[in-house]
Amino acid sequence: MRTIISTDKLSKIYQHRDGIVNALQDISLSINQGDFVTITGPSGSGKSTLLMALCGLIKPSGGTICFFDKDLTRASDQELSRFRQDHVGFIMQNFSLIPYMTALQNTMFPLILNGYEKQDQINRAISALKVVGLNNRLNHFPRELSAGQQQRVAIARAMVNKPSLIFADEPTGNLDPALAFDILNILKSINQVEAITIIIVTHSMDAAEYGNVKIRLNDGTVVNIESVL
């Protein structure tokens, strides 16, 4: 399998009035295309910081991040935006849906900048909503949907532009165990059927079991990487 994203001696330092915080220290790892990666660790271990760095949302303080052969640490804001637009989908714990947009509009949202025709946007969004079983809720606003359904819209939005990678930050954190199970199964299915690499940050050990690559962080360093063939 080809490496889709890798880091080399990645570090992130935050300046705080109480002193320097080493959020990430010398993290080197590589993730292959098609992997389902889970990142676990206690609070403050640097899980979300690593996720944000991998998708270009924050600039690391040192080291490199490569998406295939492209060094993201040297990319401009415009290039990083383009990278996220074309290759990345996001799923957040808080769902991050736009409240005044319907499920269909929320799902179409990432396609705005891709120059697709309106009908093409609609068709792609409906296909994505079909994958998550919400094609009968196209015109529902987020407030009219349950938490699980909102997270499914977020998943549809994350996959609508057919990304290479989906990053998920605590995707089941706001859901009860049954709904969490549903969401993880949908993500697993997307990983297997659509061959999209998925990287999840989670507290849940149950969720961590879904990964074929399990990364454990503590104090900003990788303490364990377990690959399941």
Binding site: Q78, S81, F90, R157
Partner: peptide, 9 residues
């Protein structure tokens, strides 16, 4: 910004 809108957009 997260889903890829550049600053100019």
């Amino acid at each position: 910004r997260m889903i890829g809108f550049p600053r100019t957009a």
